[in-house]
Computed example of a mutant assay.
Amino acid sequence: MKKLDIYISKNFIKSFLISLVAFINIFLLSQLFKVFRYVADGRMSSYQGILYLFNMLPEIIVNMTPLAVLLGSLMFINKMASNLEIISLKTSGISFRRVIIFPLVISFFISIIVYYINGTIYPRSERRMRELKGDKIIKTIPTEKRNAFLRDKNNNVYYIGYINSKEKIAEDFQIIKMDGRFSEIEKVIIAKTAKFDDNEKIWKLSDVVINDILNKKSEKIKNYSNKEFNKEPENFFTLSTDPKFLTNKELRREIRNMKITGGDTRSGLVELGKRYSFPFASLVIILIGLSLGSRYVRAASAKTIGISIFFGYGYYIIQGLFEALSKNSLINAFLGGWIPNILFLLLGIYLIHKSEY
């Protein structure tokens, strides 16, 4: 690393940290009155109030880091431009793209740190904050489901059009019996309705059609049961909890379990897609700060800062828009998380290309 790179890196990190600390202080101060109210109402002790504020830090850091990177890059590069350092470097044969290499590298490592905080520390702090407020994180099991799937240890694949775990009934009940290697279908059993017998612990099917694939036969019977079909209705459901309280590892496991049982994974996938994409907003949005900051015009710094903040909050608005579209199944959950990054990356590359240095 050359002296120039050390100088640039130190100044960028300093500006970034100043911006981040400023944002943290602003948001913590805005929450003080809420904590004072909790303490006054007896919902928290003073010590718990301090813990509550401390547990807010991961959320603030995750949400404010892109803005801190934007403002930090703008401040440091604008200072270099105002001191004519950018022009001096240019006349010395050092391009602006060369100047911004290390800020980009540093922002990448910032994104990795935010990714870790967002996927591991933030969900735990959210759970802790909920506990400190005296609220319980309720995990519930739905009583009804449509299009439920399940595979048991006997290589039976269940598909149920509708199931009610409270009444232990099902409609459009289908069971596909696979061979031992799970490579060929032996039988397909279709029942119009089914009810789980609590005494015998088996499903009892009504209006049944048994298709024997191996022997190429089909049989219709009124009632049918088999000791193999013993999966209780609760097995077709999974615990439901708010995805934001789950770490990345827990959330991936929850999504897998819900897929096995035919549950709706949309909210979990949207949250996971956001956690994979949002931390890297810093790496994208820094391009805007660097390009705008390099355009030093005397007495125009306030205008430049205003434009940068506009772009910064614009990212959050677009990110929220595509998150809403993803939740409503209008676009792919992961694609919805990355589209804002792609749009602002293209904008940043364009502004860097047009930068005046």
Rank of each mutant, 00 (worst) to 15 (best):
K34I: 09
F33R: 08
S291F: 08
A302K: 07
Y158A: 12
I138H: 05
V188G: 06
L287Q: 12
K79P: 07
V209L: 10
D242G: 07
A148V: 02
R252E: 13
K249E: 14
K79W: 04
K222R: 14
S308P: 03
E219I: 14
S329Q: 11
Q48L: 08
A194Q: 03
V157K: 11
K133H: 09
K274W: 09
N235G: 05
I175C: 06
G273W: 10
Y47P: 05
A300H: 11
K274R: 12
K139F: 14
L292F: 03
T238F: 12
L239Y: 15
F16N: 08
L71N: 03
N226P: 03
I285S: 10
N199E: 06
V62C: 06
K139A: 14
E171N: 05
R275C: 11
T91D: 01
I13L: 10
A40M: 02
R252P: 04
G134E: 09
Y47F: 11
N11V: 07
R130D: 11
Y313L: 14
G72C: 00
Y116E: 15
G134Y: 15
L150N: 13
T265W: 00
E254T: 12
D179A: 08
I13C: 01
I221Y: 06
V188R: 06
N257W: 02
K220A: 15
F36M: 12
K231Q: 15
Q174P: 11
L351N: 10
I137V: 04
I352K: 11
E184N: 13
Y162M: 07
A302Y: 06
G72N: 08
G72A: 02
L283K: 13
T65C: 01
I202K: 02
P103V: 08
E186R: 15
I121M: 03
K204I: 15
M56I: 05
I288C: 00
I137M: 11
M1G: 02
A333F: 08
L28Q: 06
A81H: 02
E167Q: 15
I317Q: 04
I349Q: 14
K168N: 12
W203P: 09
L70K: 04
G314D: 04
F173R: 08
I331G: 01
L287S: 05
I6H: 11
R37K: 04
E234K: 14
L272R: 05
E232L: 14
T140Y: 07
L20H: 02
V270D: 03
L89D: 00
L53F: 02
M44A: 04
N63E: 13
T65W: 06
A40H: 05
S329Y: 12
G337M: 14
H353T: 14
I60D: 04
I77V: 01
N154W: 08
F102V: 10
M80Q: 03
F229W: 15
Y38G: 09
K220L: 15
I113S: 07
I176A: 07
E250Q: 05
T193N: 13
